[in-house]
Design a protein around this nucleic acid. Structure first.
Length: 320
DNA sequence: TAACGGGTCTACGTTACGTCA
DNA sequence: CGTGACGTAACGTAGACCCGT
């Protein structure tokens, strides 16, 4: 969504710390931590700089989802950059968790939380890590008789076609759960041992692990979905805010009295419109010696948290 | 060494049963 | 007591991988 402001253009660039752009003009960067106030560890970096794409940019190959997002915006991007040397960049990334442990909001917003934590009375509680040895060697089996019947039916072929659904006892479930936490897949030996110990058929243990893996994956998908939704909402809000600022800038620019150095305060208090070239905004941070590196300005339009957060790269949770 | 078939395992989608409101 | 929602055990299938021929 380009904003043709004559010589000056603004762009929202979403992503984590981008690669530096060679040949970029001196940019301005105003980092904002828009997420903090909303219990989100999302860093939004707002900056203005030239919008030139460099070879180095291209060499920093985006990950696949990032690429997808870029593809979606390809048209706008190329058109925008071809005619707009100045960009306003908003890079968004999730910080490592610094929020207090147990903060639901922060937990929800960042990825990496364990879907295998259980909710007890509304509180997130890490499942007790029971070692196998902490459980009785012989788990009380509620349905030993049923099991024998099932075995008999299976062995004799009687009962085929009618599914006899067995309910695992709490003890059996707990034991399997602990075993799953140690390894989400089974070796034949482990399967046999578990079956023997729990007085189940190996097939039942196998099925239980299959279903358990499926449940874990489904849960993780739901968590991921929620996370992406929150990120999307947050970015939409920030986008709207930036659009308002763009509108203010445009209004200022069309004003008959150019007020260099008197740009709107929100995020632009240190900006200067270069009077000589009229189409660039240059960096000016007289008081901020710790200003972010120039490299953070020239971002590709990608969603950092969607691509760089560890949880998106990790395999489906193998523990539970 | 490549090709092929059989066995095994897993992911995934679906079905059906047990439980509960 | 009937019913629908929900959780989950069980099943069927496809694809990947390994191994022997």
């Amino acid at each position: 969504m380009p904003f043709p402001i004559h010589a000056m253009e603004l762009e929202l660039s979403l992503g984590d710390s981008p690669a530096p752009a060679k040949g970029a003009s001196t940019p301005m960067l105003i980092p904002t931590h828009a997420g903090k106030g909303e219990d989100h560890e999302l860093v939004l970096e707002l900056g203005v700089g030239t919008a030139k794409r460099t070879e180095q940019d291209n060499q920093n190959a985006p990950t696949q989802p990032e690429q997808d997002l870029q593809d979606q915006e390809e048209d706008d991007d190329t058109r925008f950059h071809s005619e707009s040397p100045v960009e306003l960049s908003l890079s968004c990334r999730l910080l490592p968790a610094s929020a207090e442990i147990g903060s639901v909001n922060s937990e929800e917003c960042r990825r990496g939380f364990d879907v295998n934590t259980v909710l007890v009375d509304g509180d997130t509680v890490q499942e007790r890590s029971l070692s196998t040895s902490s459980l009785p060697m012989e788990v009380p089996v509620r349905q030993a008789a049923d099991q024998e019947t099932a075995d008999d039916e299976e062995n004799s072929g009687v009962g085929r076609g009618t599914r006899k659904k067995l309910r695992l006892s709490k003890e059996q479930s707990a034991f399997l759960e602990n075993s799953f936490k140690e390894h989400s897949t089974l070796t034949p030996k482990q399967k046999g041992d578990l079956a023997k110990r729990l007085n189940l058929r190996p097939r039942q243990v196998e099925v239980w692990f299959q279903n358990r893996r499926a449940r874990t994956k489904l849960k993780q998908t739901e968590v991921d979905c929620e996370y992406l939704k929150r990120c999307c909402e947050m970015l939409s809000r920030e986008n709207r805010r930036l659009q308002r600022e763009v509108a203010e800038l445009r209004a200022l620019r069309t004003s008959p009295f150019p007020l260099y150095g008197h740009l709107p305060a929100a995020g632009f208090s240190t900006a200067r419109m270069c009077p000589s070239c009229d189409d660039k905004v240059i960096a000016h941070h007289p008081t901020n010696t710790a200003s972010p590196p120039v490299s953070t300005l020239f971002t590709k339009p990608h969603f950092g948290p969607f691509t760089v957060h560890p949880i998106l790269r990790r395999q489906p949770s193998a523990t539970s």
